[in-house]
């Protein structure tokens, strides 16, 4: 099993940390992982993206062009990376602020209105956890238990009081993701 994932969106949307939690959780499950961010001027505002590869074999190139799953969280990323998803692959997008929706017919397209849901939860920062919950629903590779462990490991202790709201967000994500 090898899952090659691209996550892209605005800087500040939690793209890199979502990838990190995925990688950490997969590592807890004894899998090989790589997390390759774009670290250029993008991370100083504008777009951010990260390639996460999870595999039960040694990972070859951490930098790849085609993905099993694309999690594309703004219009710019959707326009740029829709064509990078392998035929038969999965695209997850947030409908918030999207004018041009994905059009491919040879992939499965899922919509998750995470920004809207995060607003409803009055907790905009859990946006990425809602998306991650949605991903876990359609690609059950990493488990909720390990994601919570990952959160505990990657959040400084003073933020550990936020873990329950993150867990709620993951569960909301699993509920609201829908195929289009």
């Amino acid at each position: 099993m090898t899952e090659e994932i691209l996550i892209a969106g605005f800087g500040g949307q939690g793209v890199l940390s979502m990838g990190k939690i995925m990688a950490y959780s997969a590592m807890m499950q004894d899998m090989e992982v790589s997390w390759m961010p774009s670290y250029g001027p993008e991370m100083r505002g504008g777009t951010a993206n990260v390639i996460v590869i999870i595999s039960d074999e040694r990972i070859s190139s951490p930098i790849i062009r085609h993905f099993d799953t694309g999690i594309l969280l703004n219009q710019q990323s959707l326009d740029k990376f829709e064509d990078s998803i392998k035929p038969g692959g999965v695209l997850v997008y947030d409908g918030n602020g999207i004018n041009r929706h994905p059009v491919r017919k040879d992939i499965s397209i899922f919509r998750i209105d995470a920004a809207e849901e995060a607003g409803r939860m009055k907790s905009p920062k859990v946006n990425n956890m809602i998306v991650l919950g949605g991903f876990m629903k359609i690609k059950p590779i990493i488990t909720l238990e390990n994601v919570i462990k990952g959160l505990k490991k990657s959040l400084p202790e003073r933020y550990h009081n936020l873990i329950p709201v993150n867990e709620t967000a993951l569960q909301r994500g699993m509920e609201i993701i829908r195929e289009v």
């Binding site: 992982v33 790589s34 997390w35 990972i59």
Partner: peptide, 10 residues
């Protein structure tokens, strides 16, 4: 190189 420096792996 920058990729190996910036990349996370186990």
């Amino acid at each position: 190189d920058g990729a190996i420096g910036q990349m996370m792996e186990k």
